[in-house]
Simulated assay, not measured.
Amino acid sequence: MNEWTEAIWLGVSALITAMVLSFATMLGASVRHVSRIQQEEINAIEIVKEHRKYNKYDGTSVYPQDIVSLVLETRGNPAVWVDDEDNTNVNYIYMWDTTLPKENWQASYFTSLLPLTGSYESSLVKDANGAVLRFEFRRE
């Protein structure tokens, strides 16, 4: 008689253990699924933020002060290329990226290179994934 009760308790314990393990597995799968959805939303938000941040430099007219602000804000990542000549040839004289020496990352350095008046036509260069590689500015 005692053997039957032990067998029943063992069976019930095995069923409860199986249910707990199944629940833990389902909970883990749910957490992974929710985390994946949350990461996709975070990525989409970052893409929209980058678009809003850099859209004002895509096909618009900007002033030298805007270029200086952008260079100091991005610190060369993405790079900033400036064509300061008043002709139809594209010749980027200034190419500022992360290789610029640290002592040159000052507003006075950039404002001394660019004229105080005038405007520039801006454009963005993106890679195949849509990430911004560099900003290009041509004198108008």
Score class of each variant (00 low, 15 high):
residue 60 T to P: 00
residue 84 D to M: 05
residue 132 V to E: 02
residue 48 V to R: 11
residue 33 H to G: 05
residue 31 V to N: 08
residue 85 E to M: 10
residue 124 L to M: 10
residue 75 R to E: 15
residue 13 S to M: 12
residue 120 Y to F: 15
residue 43 N to K: 11
residue 23 F to E: 09
residue 100 L to E: 05
residue 8 I to S: 03
residue 41 E to V: 10
residue 18 A to T: 13
residue 98 T to S: 14
residue 99 T to S: 15
residue 56 K to G: 10
residue 68 V to R: 07
residue 138 R to Q: 13
residue 119 S to T: 11
residue 125 V to P: 00
residue 113 L to V: 01
residue 35 S to C: 03
residue 66 D to M: 08
residue 26 M to V: 09
residue 138 R to W: 01
residue 132 V to S: 08
residue 60 T to S: 12
residue 96 W to T: 09
residue 124 L to Y: 04
residue 11 G to K: 11
residue 96 W to L: 09
residue 107 A to T: 11
residue 103 E to K: 04
residue 58 D to C: 07
residue 36 R to C: 04
residue 38 Q to N: 13
residue 61 S to Q: 11
residue 136 E to D: 10
residue 82 V to L: 03
residue 104 N to S: 07
residue 1 M to W: 04
residue 91 N to W: 01
residue 93 I to S: 13
residue 112 S to V: 02
residue 31 V to M: 04
residue 68 V to H: 05
residue 128 A to E: 14
residue 64 P to R: 05
residue 18 A to G: 10
residue 43 N to T: 08
residue 1 M to F: 05
residue 72 L to Y: 02
residue 30 S to H: 08
residue 47 I to K: 10
residue 70 L to Q: 06
residue 135 F to H: 02
residue 71 V to W: 00
residue 133 L to A: 06
residue 21 L to V: 14
residue 76 G to S: 08
residue 93 I to C: 02
residue 43 N to H: 09
residue 129 N to H: 05
residue 28 G to F: 10
residue 40 E to W: 01
residue 16 I to A: 13
residue 125 V to L: 08
residue 73 E to W: 01
residue 61 S to A: 10
residue 30 S to A: 13
residue 12 V to P: 00
residue 23 F to H: 04
residue 10 L to T: 14
residue 37 I to Q: 12
residue 136 E to M: 10
residue 2 N to S: 15
residue 117 T to Y: 06
residue 28 G to C: 08
residue 42 I to C: 02
residue 89 N to D: 09
residue 93 I to V: 11
residue 123 S to D: 07
residue 44 A to G: 09
residue 137 F to H: 05
residue 18 A to Y: 01
residue 19 M to K: 06
residue 134 R to H: 08
residue 68 V to M: 06
residue 75 R to V: 04
residue 60 T to F: 12
residue 102 K to T: 05
residue 30 S to N: 15
residue 108 S to N: 13
residue 114 L to C: 07
residue 107 A to N: 05
residue 111 T to R: 09
residue 67 I to R: 04
residue 91 N to Q: 12
residue 126 K to D: 03
residue 33 H to V: 03
residue 27 L to A: 11
residue 18 A to Q: 03
residue 5 T to Y: 03
residue 104 N to H: 14
residue 134 R to P: 01
residue 14 A to V: 06
residue 111 T to V: 12
residue 74 T to Q: 14
residue 124 L to Q: 02
residue 33 H to R: 11
residue 124 L to F: 06
residue 74 T to W: 00
residue 26 M to R: 04
residue 84 D to N: 15
residue 135 F to R: 04
residue 3 E to D: 14
residue 53 K to C: 01
residue 41 E to P: 00
residue 1 M to Q: 07
residue 20 V to D: 00
residue 59 G to I: 09
residue 42 I to A: 10
residue 134 R to W: 02
residue 82 V to G: 02
residue 102 K to V: 04
